[in-house]
Simulated scan of single mutants.
Amino acid sequence: MFAFALAYPYLPGAKTDAFKGLSVLVGIMVSIGASGIVGQATSGFILMYTRTFRAGEYVRIGDTEGTVDGVGVFTTRIRTGLGEELLLPNSLVLQHVTRNYSRAVPGTGYVVDTVVTIGYSTPWRQVHAMLMEAARMTLDIATAPAPYVRQTALSDFYVQYRLVAYTPAERPAQRADVLSRLHANIQDVFNSYGVQIMSPHYMTDPAEPQSVPKARWYVAPADLSEGPPQSDDPKR
């Protein structure tokens, strides 16, 4: 590039307006291309020096989920649970929220979480107990840290429940298998108690109130250690 700059005045036709215009066009094109390369490289250095994730960690970047194979200057390599290798431009990685499942658990292993939405007519204690039962049935779900359930949203027609558990699996394919078995067990448990996994939607108000009377608050397999309620009066 330096040699070309020195030789430029001696090129045939270098002083013509056409040649000067072409030179400006080429310069603009090179500048635009270089800005993209510089941006990618800058993103790569940011990822490496901030240690957003490291090779071997299990992450979710946007809609992409898998194990980090490596972080380069221009791209990040992700290995999915299906064995696919994805190359993500580093600038794209910085534009999305990154969830690092590996750092939520001490040592090796990953977080395994899933969401179900159930109508308000099903007691929430029963849903919690069924999700916990499904987690206990699933091979490779750790007992410590213990799984837990959170109600993450109260929508117009249903409640959103998130089951969070941990697996000591070291490979992303193992995590995918654990999640698949967990989903199967959730279906089996809900079916065994006659609870549908679906999100109801209503065009008009239902004929019956979509609420749970106090007498049904502890429907199996909910914890009965406190005993069933003695009255429908919520103040008692």
Rank of each mutant, 00 (worst) to 15 (best):
A55T: 07
D63A: 03
L139T: 06
A142V: 00
Q210E: 12
T98Q: 13
L6V: 07
R54C: 09
A134I: 02
S155D: 12
L179K: 04
R150G: 08
R171C: 01
Y10R: 07
Q160M: 09
F2C: 12
L131R: 00
L11I: 06
H183L: 13
R216K: 09
R171G: 05
T204A: 14
F45E: 14
D188W: 02
T204W: 10
V164E: 05
I186N: 01
D17T: 08
D205I: 02
Y8I: 09
I118C: 04
S121R: 10
P229D: 11
S31F: 00
T98E: 08
S192I: 11
D188M: 09
R103H: 06
S199P: 15
R150E: 14
A41V: 01
Q174L: 13
K235N: 15
P206K: 11
A134E: 00
V73D: 10
Q187T: 13
R125L: 10
A7V: 02
E57Q: 09
A222L: 03
T143Q: 15
M137K: 00
P123V: 03
F157K: 10
G70V: 03
R150Y: 13
F157G: 08
T50D: 05
E133M: 09
V178M: 02
G13D: 05
A146P: 07
I37D: 00
I37T: 00
D177N: 13
Y218I: 07
N185W: 02
E84L: 06
G72K: 06
A18P: 11
P200Q: 04
Q151A: 12
T114Y: 14
G33W: 01
G21R: 00
V178P: 01
G194T: 10
K20A: 11
H128Q: 08
F157V: 03
S35Y: 07
E170K: 11
T50N: 07
F2W: 14
D156M: 08
Q151K: 13
